[in-house]
Nucleic acid binder design. Structure first.
Lengths: 265, 265
DNA sequence: CGCGATTTGTGCACGCCTTCACAAGCGCCT
DNA sequence: AGGCGCTTGTGAAGGCGTGCACAAATCGCG
């Protein structure tokens, strides 16, 4: 039941970071656990077993236990985990014990929807300011928040202790916006613009690209449409003859026959 | 080599039904490459080396080459990749040679923003129908699309050959909506509702949880705030009274409290 | 016509993540 | 008090993904 200490380093010499060095995969799942735990707490559960929680969040129970074990040892064998305690622990590690201030840049359609999104406020965040480059939008009020001009970023970021920026601008504007955010002191960025961003090493960026998600689904659709087709005739399976925009040229694999080696499955 | 069909020699002009069995990690990156390649094509580039493309998309060039090699062999040594050919290949594997019809359920703030989002149309998708359970919204028109009642789902899905559903409803409604989508024949779902969904095995679900993204960023913020803070202050750092909702109990951590971290190795 | 510069495609090793399986710990019941 | 069933925490194994480093392949030039 050793703690999160990565390797059994010597206590005397090893300066241990304040936070357990969680695997990224674990970090990404903790919020999911947290959500489920809040539900359980509201439903009046005092404790929960890893097995029960794992079915709720659709995660292998061993993986769940290992994830939680990274936080320390907060379960009771034979009983399970104390729901409230676990919530507190996860919120602590995720840094949610303080309500973090977020700046939202770009109040187009998506930006407005994000500004209104209740999920942020409900889960530890406060949208502290809205920005846009369009002077016509500046001064407008969106869900109780004044839209400021992007040039006011440095001042507002400082005043409101903003550490997280959300980019909901068109792609061409995104890089300039990040640069401004970064120089204003923001060190975490959530990017909705469909483009790659350049940031210094100390800045974290997460991207959400809506079209990419659909394209990934599209791949699986394509695959499903190919394989289980017992008829085994058509390739793209399109019922109607559409495909108007791009040239629907057929794939021509010009792989060289130099390797007759046909590795069978 | 020879991932999928060794079509090279025998030009039976036959279809290539068997798609290469791409690693999921590769599938997730292909859309990013595709985006960059479109830019390159517009900029007039005929060919691109893996090195150049890799810097554009911020991916290790070896990884990039390996990803592309899964598609077949479409590069020329000493030269690079043919941009147009590569675009066609990626669009083919992703199943983008046909424009896929998408149903969007839930036209609240987020749903409306998604309905307006140009990125979908620009990248191979067509929002074919909008649905909502609220009769007051049914009949309204949003960005040129009629909002239908969710009970019309089966009919519309069939008529429009919809295979992908997007859920932008509140969490409590999401599971019921998926069930309806699935029974209507939809086999891929993009879920924006903050909850876990149950679906049959043959249905793919991808989730986008905006608050989770912020929480992951929050974790890294927390970590950054702990480690490099040379001063004694560490844990929750921010001023201002907060944490009104939940008990701001400090971590009853058995792990050692914040030790000033010395520099790494 | 051959040589050097360039770039692809990939074998290999390493590290992270997942999963199984099980000993250790805890509470309850008899 | 002792045993029994339940659950946690984790060692070990296997799989997947990443990145290095290099042979093979191609082009351009002398």
């Amino acid at each position: 039941m050793s703690q999160h200490r990565p390797t059994g380093a010597s206590d005397s010499a090893g300066p241990v970071p304040a936070l357990p060095d969680l695997p990224e995969a674990t970090v990404a799942r903790l919020p999911v656990y947290l959500r489920a735990l809040h539900s359980l707490a509201e439903a009046g559960n005092d404790t929960i077993s890893s097995e029960a929680l794992s079915t709720a969040v659709r995660v292998n129970s061993a993986k769940l236990r290992k994830d939680l074990s990274h936080l320390g040892s907060y379960g009771t064998r034979g009983v399970g985990y104390d729901v409230v305690l676990l919530i507190e622990q996860i919120e602590y590690v995720l840094g949610l014990t303080q309500r973090r201030a977020v700046a939202l840049v770009g109040v187009g359609n998506l930006g407005q929807a994000l500004a209104d999104y209740a999920g942020f406020a409900n889960r530890g965040f406060r949208i502290a300011a809205l920005f846009d480059a369009d002077r016509r939008l500046v001064g407008r009020e969106i869900s109780g928040l004044l839209v400021r001009h992007i040039d006011d970023l440095p001042q507002t970021v400082a005043e409101e202790s903003i550490t997280i920026g959300v980019i909901a601008t068109p792609a061409p504007a995104a890089q300039a916006v990040v640069d401004q955010l970064v120089s204003a002191g923001v060190t975490s960025i959530l990017n909705f613009a469909p483009c790659v961003l350049s940031v210094p090493d100390n800045v974290d960026v997460r991207k959400v690209d809506l079209a990419i998600e659909l394209q990934i689904l599209s791949f699986h659709e394509h695959r499903k449409a190919s394989a289980p087709a017992a008829s085994g005739e058509e390739l793209t399976t399109t019922p109607g003859g559409l495909a108007a925009t791009t040239t629907p040229r057929l794939p021509t694999d010009r792989r060289r026959p130099t390797e007759p080696k046909a590795v069978g499955p």
